[in-house]
Structure formats: C-alpha cells, structure tokens
C-alpha cells in the first residue's frame, strides 16, 4: 500500500487519449445477397435449412441448430409483426432526444429470427406487441445496400 496518497483534488492529473478505429466489415455471401435483394428488389429474404427446415432471417450461411450449410433462399415479403419494442428517450450521452425513437424486433411469420429496426408513421402510444407492420423502403436511387435502405416499418394497412 502507498503511504502517501493524493489528498488535494487539484493535483489529480489526467491524460486525454483517443482510439481511432476504422474498419471495413465484410458482408459475406449471405449478408451480401440479403442486402442486395433489399437494394435491387425491395425484398426481405430468409435462408432455409434443408436439414431442419428452419428459415433464418437475417439469412446466414450456416444453421445455428444443426450446423448445416444454408443454400435455399425464400422471399418473406415485406410485412411482419412487432415482437417487442421500446421507446428511446435518450441519446448516446444520456441526453433527452428531441423526438423519441421507437425500436422494435419485427418477426416474419414462421421464420426464425427477425429484424431489429425502427418504427415510423406511428405515435409511440399507438404501438402494441403483435402489431402488423410493413417495411418502408427508400427510393431505389437512394438505396446503397444497407439495412437502412429500409427507412422504417410502419403500421400495415
């Protein structure tokens, strides 16, 4: 143990540092096809395991359950259901957001998994677990092969 400790807070010094980290994340075979389908065809796709029959969304190259390679692709449509949601009122620094943001897990029929995304064109108090929703895509010329090519999900008609 140190016998001499700092007792004057004005003597406490800090050194400020910054970790700069830029990455290029490879989408991979499944990720690239999934996002390309959104970009080119405004379609949400799943991948089906031919051994256990499970349909994954987002699609993967392999089955989590049986470790089989996934090669069969299925169009899931653009409508899903709110499995759970939250209304975010604070930002990255814990400060109040000007407008709350609704995040939800959207599931698609019997497919295993879903998409984490935002909800739009709906007031927070009007959302409910189980609510049918549909994807709102950006215009084709603005889509760049990102999950944000889907602007948000809105209540389905």
């Amino acid at each position: 143990m140190s016998l001499e400790k700092i007792t004057d807070p004005r003597r406490m010094r800090h050194w400020l540092g910054h970790m700069e980290t830029d990455y290029r994340y490879t989408l991979g075979i499944a990720g690239e096809r999934f996002l390309n389908e959104i970009k080119e065809n405004a379609r949400i796709m799943g991948a089906r395991c031919k051994r256990c029959g499970v349909i994954y969304v987002p699609p993967k190259m392999y089955c989590e359950e049986c470790f089989e390679k996934l090669e069969e692709w299925i169009d899931l449509g653009t409508r899903g259901e709110v499995y759970t949601y939250t209304i975010a009122y604070v930002d990255m620094d814990g400060n109040r957001l000007a407008e709350p943001v609704i995040y939800a897990l959207i599931t698609f029929g019997d497919a295993y998994g879903g998409l984490i995304h935002k909800l739009g064109e709906v007031k927070p108090e009007e959302v409910w677990i189980g609510m049918p929703v549909e994807a709102v895509f950006k215009p084709p010329q603005e889509r760049k092969g990102s999950i944000t090519d889907i602007k948000y999900f809105k209540p389905a008609q």
Binding site: G31, Y85, I87, A88, Y103, H117, I129
Partner: peptide, 21 residues
Amino acid sequence: PIMVRPLGGNPYYIAGMEMHR
C-alpha cells in the same frame, strides 16, 4: 456492424425491448 449498428442510437434500447417482452 451490418444488421444493427447502422440504426444508431443508445444501445441500451435493447434492454428496453427485452424488459417489455
């Protein structure tokens, strides 16, 4: 980084979603 991070926002929203369900 591909499926979730681009949505942005404070990541503790995941706790809100789990608690709700």
